[in-house]
Design a protein around this nucleic acid. Structure first.
Lengths: 335, 335
DNA sequence: ATAATGTCTTTTATCGTGAAAAAACAGTTT
DNA sequence: AAACTGTTTTTTCACGATAAAAGACATTAT
């Protein structure tokens, strides 16, 4: 029973997709097993973002300001500045941080090194889950997962705990995790809640006072939808980002943390779903944009009947899209 | 800002309620800081439960059978048997496990040693939260919490991650946790979802076929409610357990994992709420039992209108009870 | 042959440790 | 004096290690 999932994992390793394997010189990777405590991805990511900032100005702002701009502490800012001085990008003397040259492509840290451990683990895990061969009822082995991904067990455990709220896995008391599977039942349960929550949020949205800031946000989103619709042929893959922004805006109107937080589950599922199911992507997104525009019009009209109808219609087709992408599961899980 | 919560923690330590402090000889506790990896609470708890089994029989069943009975592995069963032989409770030779004497009170391991680390941490944390002085916006310090409770940081981190789904705390990206507070807003958001979910579950329940096993469960619960009602004066504190069982039974009828799982949030809140707010406990529970009986009747009638009315009525008074027990917060949290 | 016991291996739970990153403190500069 | 820079302390994050507990395998008894 657990064998199948184990097989999938082994297969995965052979494929060379593991974080610490292949397509990089082995001795050059950070994954050398020896007492590595914590990767400096926060620094590397902020450094890359700071490089992009360099293009625009002749000199950088103060350290605290840079900190808030990049979303990191001043300690990290100083590490970045030190490196930029070293590589001749800036001249740094106390408050003076003058830009000396434009950043080159090789100034950037490679993308893979800027990811959080949590992201790395999530990606690996989801790839296994969606790659097929992962059936409901299968056991999940923390140690094996950690070894395969090339990270410590603690990180994997924490990931699984966080991930458990998505309802796809479940823990057996002082024992292993059990995979519940990305099944039809899961999709139906997920969409049931989604519909309940979004219908309520949309009604709350429509009832918001005219001077609320959300109406401006909605107008902006409407514009972006129209632009995307006009260039749908080349930009159809930009829809998923727009989709999330619109739905999150609506959910926020509920003023209920449980509703807002639940959108994380939906976002996660749709994120991987978009990556995975590319069939008729353009057509699907085109339809969805149309539905969104109707939905937005309905919200702006503040007519609860219209809002309800537009919301129902869009959610129904979203559910349909999700359902058709799920292969029929063979083995029904036993309690 | 974070000072207040820190003060609360220090106070807590002075009170001597910390797991590793006072009312036990310091040198005898398991908390001696040196390389202790894992407590054997699973064994101790199963041992105690096994002792109670001893009263009823002249000899114990096979090892695998005992394992399923106690919910532990055979490894643990054998450790238990070994100890029971050592203390002269049984004679153990292969399949023969004859009971030699009745267990005495001092055969049992002390209660505190049978708790999970997660339970210990949760209790300490909730005590702080409800003890007052813990206001919204306060920082939560993993290291400090771990030190005060006398456990490792890893366990505290895992607890906080699990606990975060209750919506009372929130993580700042690569930084500390923030307390959102057990406020009026929290209670309202919680009960809003609860009402949505339970109304739907109750309707699903009433629509269940006559031959479903739930009807027998419901009859049993009705009996227990009547018994409790007749002895309410002395047994009023047993209501909370019954309450949870009834609501869980109803929620399960939704066949939706998100609805079922959400009851964990409600159960947690009500568990601590019951412990904390003892004002008019008898009266409140008496009223609730009455409402439950009406609710049960409505479900049995399978009349959706009646079900809806009974459910609404009970949930409304449950919300009221919760709300009155929350002290009005002074400082509104900033975004 | 089935189901138990006896033994060995693997996995989970928890800790201490150390580097990365944040935060606090102290001293400067405008 | 307000805002910045320089320095030090704390806290978070992630790891390897180890005992408890689970699980697998081998052996024996009914």
């Amino acid at each position: 029973m657990s064998l199948v999932f184990r097989k999938a994992i082994s297969l995965f390793r052979v494929m060379g997709t593991s974080y610490c394997a292949s397509n990089r010189p082995p001795q050059a990777t950070a994954c050398n097993g020896s007492g590595m405590s914590k990767s400096n991805n926060v620094y590397k990511d902020a450094y890359n973002r700071c490089l992009r900032l360099l293009d625009e100005t002749r000199s950088l702002p103060s350290e605290p300001e840079l900190g808030t701009l990049l979303g990191v502490s001043r300690t990290t800012v100083r590490t970045i500045l030190a490196r930029m001085e070293e590589t001749g990008l800036i001249a740094w003397n106390k408050r003076a941080k003058t830009v000396l040259r434009e950043p080159r492509p090789d100034d950037f840290f490679p993308e893979e090194e800027t990811d959080t451990l949590a992201e790395i683990i999530e990606r690996s895990f989801m790839r296994r889950l969606l790659a097929g061969g992962a059936e409901a009822g299968m056991q999940i082995n923390e140690l094996e997962l950690a070894r395969e991904i090339g990270v410590g067990t603690t990180s994997v455990r924490e990931f699984l705990i966080r991930f458990s709220r998505f309802g796809l896995i479940e823990k057996r008391r002082n024992s292993h995790w059990v995979l519940k599977g990305f099944t039809r039942a899961f999709a139906l349960e997920l969409t049931e809640i989604r519909e309940m929550f979004e219908l309520r949020s949309a009604a709350a949205f429509a009832a918001l006072p005219q001077d609320s800031a959300v109406w401006a946000d909605l107008d902006r989103l409407e514009d972006e939808h129209r632009q995307l619709a006009s260039e749908i042929a080349k930009r159809f893959n930009e829809f998923s980002e727009l989709d999330e922004r619109l739905h999150r805006l609506i959910h926020r109107a509920s003023h209920n943390r449980f509703i807002v937080d639940f959108y994380d589950v939906i976002a996660m599922i749709f994120h991987y779903h978009y990556q995975w199911n590319k069939a008729q992507e353009r057509e699907r997104n085109e339809v969805a944009i149309g539905e969104h525009l109707v939905y937005i019009e309905a919200l702006k009209s503040r007519d609860l009947g219209k809002v309800d109808a537009a919301c129902r219609k869009h959610l129904k087709s979203a559910r349909q899209t999700l359902l058709t992408s799920i292969p029929e599961s063979r083995s029904p899980q036993k309690s």
